[in-house]
């Protein structure tokens, strides 16, 4: 079997398993999985930049929340329906990612990390500053009546599950196509050896900018979808914690792999879910996981699997 066929089977199998999940799993876990799939889209967006292009951002919450608030505010204040509001969310992500990319890509390494962290913090504070419109920390609810997309009621658990699944499958397919395409190949080359890539005649800056915009846009898609599916928009999704989480998910699952982001999100979600029933200090686990991953498993789950057993894994 060719690597492409194996990869197709793996990804197709995952989607089928998730379809089956709806019919097998208890309702509680279905709800969790819907959240995990929507958040895995965020992780896949993060992975485009971190895993495939080698750029570590500490501020992706700004893109996630740009999507969420672009969607939510246009429902709340412009009276948009779910469809146009979703598009607004995506556009907000594209615009923000372009602006941040143009500025932040003048820096590299640690400076890039801090610049993205600062921009994201500024976005978070801006949401708080405009509390009269955004309702700040408290956030606001998207009413079920505003969550009708093409006649489908996204507040219904079944439709919600499948909407999340469709989105997840589309983004997974899109990212796996991306890294097979010449553009994605150049991103990987930049991650591996930036100077060599430049001296092969590639415009490194434009490729990186493309990666930031793509990554930011996918994150915004996730944010807008999460708001629509679960009916809530709040400032906590713009906080530093939501910039750290996708990093954690991708590190845990395996940076630079297609299934890694989903695996990482799945594991971390359930770890935190279990822990938070015991203690309020559930972020302790996230901290410990970050330290342990950095020390002992920088490749993550899918990365170790690829190295030991399956070199074909995309």
């Amino acid at each position: 079997m060719t690597p492409t066929a194996k990869a197709f089977l793996l990804h197709g199998g995952l989607v089928l398993a998730l379809v089956a999940g709806h019919f097998i799993l208890p309702e509680y876990h279905q709800g969790n999985l819907a959240r995990i799939m929507a958040l895995a889209v965020y992780a896949m967006g993060y992975n485009v930049l971190f895993g495939y292009s080698g750029l570590l951002s500490l501020g992706h919450a700004m893109f996630f929340s740009a999507g969420m608030y672009g969607m939510g505010l246009s429902v709340q204040h412009l009276g948009f329906g779910a469809g146009p509001a979703f598009v607004c969310g995506i556009l907000a992500g594209v615009v923000l990612a372009t602006a941040v990319g143009v500025l932040a890509l003048r820096t590299t390494g640690v400076a890039f990390m801090i610049v993205t962290l600062m921009f994201s913090q500024a976005v978070f504070l801006t949401i708080l500053y405009f509390t009269p419109w955004t309702r700040g920390d408290e956030g606001f609810v998207i009413q079920p009546v505003d969550r009708m997309l093409f006649g489908i009621d996204l507040s219904d658990a079944t439709y919600r599950y499948f909407a999340a699944l469709v989105l997840f499958a589309i983004v997974m397919l899109a990212t796996s196509r991306l890294i097979q395409a010449p553009f994605g190949r150049v991103l990987i080359a930049i991650r591996e050896n930036e100077e060599r890539t430049r001296m092969l005649g590639y415009d490194v800056y434009r490729h990186k900018l493309g990666a930031v915009i793509l990554s930011g846009t996918i994150s915004a898609v996730s944010g807008a979808a999460y708001g629509l599916l679960f009916g809530y928009v709040g400032a906590s999704f713009a906080s530093v914690q939501y910039s750290i989480l996708p990093l954690l998910w991708v590190l845990l699952g395996g940076a630079g792999t297609i299934v890694g982001p989903f695996l990482g999100t799945l594991f971390m979600f359930y770890l935190i879910d279990l822990t938070s029933s015991i203690t309020t200090a559930y972020m302790l686990l996230a901290g410990a996981a970050l330290v342990l991953l950095t020390l002992f498993a920088p490749e993550g789950l899918a990365g170790s699997f690829r190295r030991r057993l399956a070199p074909w894994l995309p």
Binding site: L56, L247, A281, M283, L290, T294
Partner: peptide, 20 residues
């Protein structure tokens, strides 16, 4: 870069341990 990620981990470990 790995140090930043590790110290983010330390941040949560210290903060949440104090919370507990």
């Amino acid at each position: 870069e790995r140090t930043i990620v590790a110290t983010i981990g330390l941040l949560y470990i210290i903060q949440q341990t104090v919370l507990m």
